[in-house]
């Protein structure tokens, strides 16, 4: 499977895949990149048969930044599949506005499409807007999506603290756990390691 990284920036990007590809969304970690109003749009078009896409997007939004992003996958031919996996961790007074649209046109029989968009809202003022959209015009398909948002499970947090970790350490572990399955899906070791390093929160770094 081909691997391609996509930088989340303030443009409209269109990708027409001609072979099985894993796209990895990467946030710009330079300071305050997402402080001003932004609208990011990324379109994926499947116009060639027998192509499978994976779109993986780990997102950490902090320091009062706000991201508005739309991801669209358009299936125009038969026998294609897509899997969109977006997991975001949103810190106090930051927000994510996510539109994830899967469009399957009339000709696209034997399509499999799924979209998952899960967010952790850490602390007061964290906000998530989500619009997962399905537009299906063929019946020989399997299409599904799921979206969830909420805080870290209080019971898990309590458990870790009862084992001797302080609150900030416990939260870090649970956040890493939340993103774990997403990161393990990334096929490129280099990118994976880089991400793990970026996501490793300094031990005493206060979260809230």
């Amino acid at each position: 499977m081909k691997i391609e990284t996509i930088n989340i920036n303030n443009n409209i990007n269109t990708y027409k895949a001609t072979e099985d590809t894993q796209y990895i969304l990467q946030m710009d970690t330079s300071n305050n990149k997402y402080k001003s109003i932004n609208e990011i749009s990324i379109d994926f078009i499947l116009a060639k048969e027998d192509v499978n896409l994976q779109i993986i997007g780990p997102m950490i939004i902090r320091e009062e930044q706000n991201i508005k992003i739309s991801i669209q996958v358009k299936h125009m031919v038969p026998n294609t599949s897509c899997e969109v996996l977006i997991k975001s961790v949103i810190f106090p007074h930051s927000s994510l506005d996510f539109l994830g649209r899967i469009y399957i046109d009339n000709h696209s029989r034997n399509t499999t499409a799924s979209l998952k968009d899960n967010s952790l809202l850490i602390g007061e003022g964290a906000r998530k807007y989500s619009r997962p959209v399905l537009e299906i015009h063929n019946n020989e398909v399997k299409a599904s999506h799921g979206s969830a948002s909420g805080n870290i499970d209080p019971l898990s947090l309590y458990y870790l603290q009862s084992r001797g970790l302080n609150k900030s350490q416990s939260e870090n572990i649970l956040i890493e756990g939340f993103l774990d399955d997403l990161i393990n899906r990334i096929n490129d070791r280099g990118i994976r390691d880089k991400l793990i390093k970026e996501l490793k929160f300094k031990e005493k770094e206060p979260i809230i």
Binding site: L121, R127, Y129, S130, R131, H145, S147, S149, G150
Partner: peptide
Amino acid sequence: TYPVMRNNNNTSYIEHEASV
């Protein structure tokens, strides 16, 4: 399917699933 979810409170949970 055109669902809209707006979560403005971090202590609350919204979950949504759909299939066709």
